[in-house]
Write a protein that binds this DNA or RNA. Sequence first.
DNA 1: CTTACTCAAATTGTCGACAATTAATTATAC
DNA 2: GTATAATTAATTGTCGACAATTTGAGTAAG
Lengths: 233, 233
Amino acid sequence: MTKTEDRVGRVYDLVRRMAENFEFKPESQINEVALAKSFGTSRTPVREALNRLVAEGFLTFQARRGFFCRPLSPSQILSLYEARIAVETEALRLAIRKSSDSQLAALLETLRGVLSEYDQCKDPRRLLELDEQFHVDIAKGSKNQELVRILENLNARIRFVRLIDLKNAYLNDGAETTTSQIPSHLMIMQNIADRDESVAVDTIRKHIERRREETTEAVAKAFAEIYFVDDDA
Amino acid sequence: MTKTEDRVGRVYDLVRRMAENFEFKPESQINEVALAKSFGTSRTPVREALNRLVAEGFLTFQARRGFFCRPLSPSQILSLYEARIAVETEALRLAIRKSSDSQLAALLETLRGVLSEYDQCKDPRRLLELDEQFHVDIAKGSKNQELVRILENLNARIRFVRLIDLKNAYLNDGAETTTSQIPSHLMIMQNIADRDESVAVDTIRKHIERRREETTEAVAKAFAEIYFVDDDA
DNA sequence: CTTACTCAAATTGTCGACAATTAATTATAC
DNA sequence: GTATAATTAATTGTCGACAATTTGAGTAAG
């Protein structure tokens, strides 16, 4: 029974996915016993995973009250986008500054590979994955594990809203809006190839800001999505 | 006995302080039972606190092996400084952009207050606290809780090395090196008053970079400090 | 002297139990 | 009918126990 196998890791992955997708409604309390039962474990590994997720900003915690889902608000999402700009602009700057020519060429090759699939992809979920990968690959070019780590955390916390936004854009404009960002990806790559730090930073900043502007609307749609299926607000 | 009082919070604070100060030697394993015993609790709240600290980057974890102190290396510290630059430059930019004149005036007043104590402070520990506060206050001007949160995490993880560095500078140069950064603080404030984003960002970047350059040496001294007292490497 | 093996000790991972607290429900007064 | 109080139920916080695994010591072989 007690197989000293990594239950926490498993539970963590599951709860994290649930938190990412707002399967816990914003601000709602998380019931430890129900969760544990649904996983077929005791509360111990559940609580350990929950504690990790609090530290990562997916959940909040109040002593003697328990764990709660993070709030979902336009200002919160805006903050995450702003933080993304902070991390990605500096990471890009460092990537250009620190990389050798051959390293930069390798990075561009990787990015080309990502874009080639991105180009002909129809699935919003996969599209989002590829976009994230594009940005994370650039960040990895900074050779700064800390920036990468922060970026991946931010991505995970924005993911739900971005996906809603993407699905919506896809439905409305027949994949037109989504492809309209490819030029901006190509522009970033050109700036990298040119080793032009300040222009590259400016390009990626505007690129992220453009996404950020759709935020408020997307949050509203996200709320609808969350409270639609099994309702009773 | 089980008073449902916040043991995790208490334990978390204690372990965090220990991790900050590298009272666990870098890379060394953390013994849960010993820790629990020293706190007079069971392992449960200890493990919960440990899990939080892993997510915050103070510790690492390997399944079935346990919790370990984070490594201490120049490159790791460099990464944290680079991340600080990313966060603080963008936060400063946002603070200038988003604040009203009166908000900016209030911020500058706060900063003046911090500097006035900083000026005549002799204690390295307090000096560091005040410097951190100066930077965090600016970051708070961004009205972005996420950036503030990230910065505070980064600060805590750099703190030990910075303190060693500060103490050393103080001893060697009779508080001369430390005061030499005041002009740079004043310069940042002037840039804020002028609402000059790009210059302000450039000033704070250089300010942080100057500190970063002392990193490698400071890490070496930090190692000496860690392995000196109860030695046996 | 080094390497491989065996066995004992230490450590981790998980569980079920129970006290303490908070939340919900019912009852009671106004 | 609403508000307040008492009682019950649900939930959290912590503990001690025990199986599974890893670590380390001691021993034997090469």
